[in-house]
């Protein structure tokens, strides 16, 4: 498993735990009112679970498991892959900051960064979505 996939998968597990903690606290808050401010964690819970956990885990696994290039045995441009990782994760934290109105235009910046991460993922993998069938004969 390449280093980038290991980073993405482990980060996704951390987000899973963060999202789970926020979700569990909100669920407990429904039964026993612990603190009304706990509901403010809802946007972070959604962001951690969808982009941090599900999407990042899937992208990290795909980077590992999709066919490598036949000629170089590589998975493509590494700096571009690191930029994808950084961009996606920065985007997640900008969106969370937006939930607390911490930084101006954080929501827009977050979505732009996430989009950049996904576009880089698509560019990195486009030519890796192939069949080896033609090369076997």
């Amino acid at each position: 498993m390449p280093l980038i996939s290991r980073w993405m998968i482990r980060l996704s597990l951390v987000y899973l735990l963060l999202g789970l903690t926020a979700g569990s606290l909100m669920l407990i808050n429904k039964a026993w009112m612990v603190h009304p401010l706990l509901w403010a964690a809802l946007p972070a819970h959604i962001e951690w679970m969808i982009f941090g956990w599900i999407i990042q885990f899937t992208l990290g696994t795909a980077y590992w498991i999709l066919p490598r290039f036949l000629d170089s045995k590589s998975r493509g441009n590494e700096p571009m892959a690191w930029t994808m990782l950084l961009s996606l994760n920065l985007g997640i934290w900008f969106i969370i900051a937006d939930g607390f109105s911490l930084i101006p235009y954080a929501g827009l910046s977050g979505r732009v960064l996430e989009t950049l991460g996904v576009v880089l993922f698509a560019l990195l993998h486009w030519k890796r979505i192939v069949t080896y069938g033609d090369h076997e004969h």
């Binding site: 482990r10 597990l13 789970l20 669920l27 407990i28 026993w32």
Partner: peptide
């Protein structure tokens, strides 16, 4: 409902403990 939150935590926590060392 509180028990269900704890069970979610136990379940997901066990998965993370299992899979973390297998990310290699």
């Amino acid at each position: 409902l509180v028990v269900s939150a704890v069970l979610h935590f136990v379940g997901i926590g066990s998965y993370v403990l299992e899979i973390w060392p297998r990310v290699m």
